[in-house]
Amino acid sequence: MDIVVCGAQKPFVRGGAEQHQENLVAALETAGHRVDLVRLPVAWEKGRLFDSPLAWRMVPIDADLVIATNFPSYFVQHPNKVVWLLHQHRGAYDGFEAGASWSDFAWDDVSLEEQRLLTEWDVAALSEARTVFSNSGVVSRRLARFNGLDSTPLAHPPPLHEVLHPGEFGDYVLSVQRQEENKRPHLLVEAMAHVPSPVRAVMAGRGELLDEVRRHVEDAGLAGKVELPGFVPDADLVELYAGALAVVYVPEDEDYGYTTLQAFYAGKPVICAADSGAVLDWVEDGVTGLVCDGTPAGLAAAIRRLADDPALAQRLGAAGRERIADLSWADVVARLTAP
């Protein structure tokens, strides 16, 4: 089949969604399809909210199948449209509801009319799709609650899944993420003040908060205990996963989160927070990891528990590895392209 994968991207920003789209293209090509990736820029602020959806509406796509991924690429018109939804415009839905700093919607009639219209547009565009899959249970629940639409969660293997492997259970917890507000990097730094040596934290990844978090580590006198190497090459990252005691991933209401799955491929338990969103689709407290209350003290207690009981860490990590045993891109491709 000739398949066009559609995705939106904010220029100069590259994250999980862009990786996801490229991995999907590769998986479709491996299955023998001819595939192209079409991207248009997106702007998130309210004043330009509808520009990019409208642009997608007018884009002519000649292909046997289009697979739209994130907001607003699913506004593309095609008689054979499948949506694999990574996320909607979160600032107009859950971010608005939670009063998140990254949502510019306010409780006034103008904002509410923009939000209402986006809801109507989303319902119209998503209802055109032959099938709507989502990235995770969290994304499906949002779609049901805000738009009244059903969707089927469809999980996929994370990047590096072919090379990640279990290893020794070392003396550090690993965090792999962009250092940004919704990932809550300061939480781990504060928790480490309550974790006795020799347990360390390695926080891999860049992001707009990297310098701020580094200063926080210095100011807290944790320089020898918390490392922030910034960007880590893939080969080194694989070995960091292999040698960790556990992986800490405590984002706020995550859509999917590759870190959790990468940890499981490496046979490591994941410590997350009770409000970490789709991470909780995978992390079951006491089974594949530990779910803390999202406070520094709670996170520190979870880290200490695994440091004091490495056998527990091994058991939870093994269960996590078992949990992702059936994930495959071949299955994803079969479901997305099924007639």
Binding site: Y93, E97, W107, L112, Q115, R116, T119, E120, V123, R145, F146, N147, G148
Partner: peptide, 10 residues
């Protein structure tokens, strides 16, 4: 205009 429950609540 269609107004779904979240917007109605707002």
């Amino acid at each position: 205009r269609p107004i779904l429950p979240f917007t109605r609540a707002g």
